[in-house]
Write a protein that binds this DNA or RNA. Structure first.
Lengths: 208, 208
DNA sequence: CTATTACGCTACGACCCGTAGCGAAACCAC
DNA sequence: GTGGTTTCGCTACGGGTCGTAGCGTAATAG
């Protein structure tokens, strides 16, 4: 019934994979040099060495393109295992802060989130490719801490989800606000103080 | 040396005060209906019943205009005196969340902050008219708590400033992230849980 | 009155958007 | 090889917004 390549290969000329990576890299480059507002799709196409029409065949517009370009920055985000909850938090927060310190992340992230306020599809895209991956780290970190006995095990899964959401908003919100609004570096000293505050709140939530 | 009106009145036709308020109101209206990206200065001028040139005589561009329009939303932000630190925090955070729930705040605030990443003058404008006023509430709230004996008095003023900055980033960041990124309401239940986390961290910072 | 400044209006070049149309190139099945 | 199919690069276009210049008029001070 089927030949060697059942479904994956559709007929016709395949899309250039190198073009994708070139476009996303060009987008980040333009974000650094021009910022969000002065970034144009025509300019990105020129930088990537592709035609403007090729860009529009793959992305609906500036919003979606920048989301994908910024999302790749968060690929390097992983949860270290440093033995204690405090050390794990410090490690992952510091990673997050390092990524946010890059100009392409600063220029792009806030802008697409602002756009997502009035674009539900864009919000979902951001959630899938950026936010949810970060939230997983919170859940995983809490699970490790519970396995170590640093935090009591969760009883109500619904309550656990609410707590994870709260922690995530606090962590991500604080780092983003520090970096993008206060415009000061989230360096080791700041992360250490922040972790200290968070840690007490974490344990207190579990032992009301 | 001076007549009746020394400095304030310059020669010539004075600027219309009603035009200012009409323009800022029209800006907020356009933010609600169109959002940041589709808001044009020509449209705002039409809504306000003024000429487009009048707009450009008073504001350098879209960024500065929206900052002023959004800043007025935060005029109603005041620190209540509910007797305890926990109650004060819950009160002011709930006020902040209520303002951020308004569509004109959502659409405008994130966008101008994103623009301020690459515009130092705009960042200063935001700081003066929006951020610093919020930070004052943190400082004032801590002073009250210290007067009540809920928090130990500060010794090092530099350390006190760092702590206030940290608390501010945590509070503002968490509420903003909850409202604009997670896109879920910062209602009384959430604010209560958040306050619980924050309060423990606050006291722990003071008693290391 | 004159001088000065703000206002409304019109018009303009410049830029970017997003799309259509075309021929050429790269893959598939036969 | 020969079709069929899809992508690619390129050009060109109408439409929209920008920010400014120019002009005549309106409002205030001296």
């Amino acid at each position: 019934m089927q030949s060697s390549t059942p479904v994956p290969r559709a007929a016709g000329r395949p899309r250039s994979a190198t073009a994708d990576t070139a476009i996303l890299a060009a987008t980040r480059e333009a974000l650094v040099e021009l910022g969000w507002s002065k970034l144009t799709l025509g300019d990105v196409a020129t930088r990537a060495g592709v035609a403007k029409t090729t860009l529009y065949r793959r992305w609906a517009g500036k919003n979606e393109l920048v989301v994908d370009a910024v999302a790749e920055l968060f690929d390097e985000l992983h949860l270290p295992d440093r033995g204690t909850l405090a050390a794990d938090i410090e490690g992952v927060v510091l990673q997050f802060a390092t990524i946010l310190a890059r100009p392409e992340a600063k220029s792009g992230l806030m802008a697409v989130v602002a756009e997502s306020i009035r674009d539900d599809a864009l919000r979902d895209r951001i959630r899938e490719s950026i936010v949810d991956r970060q939230k997983c780290l919170v859940v995983e970190g809490r699970a490790r801490a519970q396995a170590r006995g640093e935090l009591p095990p969760e009883t109500d899964p619904e309550e656990a989800a609410r707590t994870a959401d709260l922690i995530f908003d606090v962590v991500a919100g604080a780092v983003v606000h520090r970096t993008l609004v206060s415009a000061e570096p989230a360096d080791e000293e700041w992360v250490h103080s922040f972790t200290q505050v968070l840690l007490l709140g974490l344990t207190s939530l579990s032992n009301p």
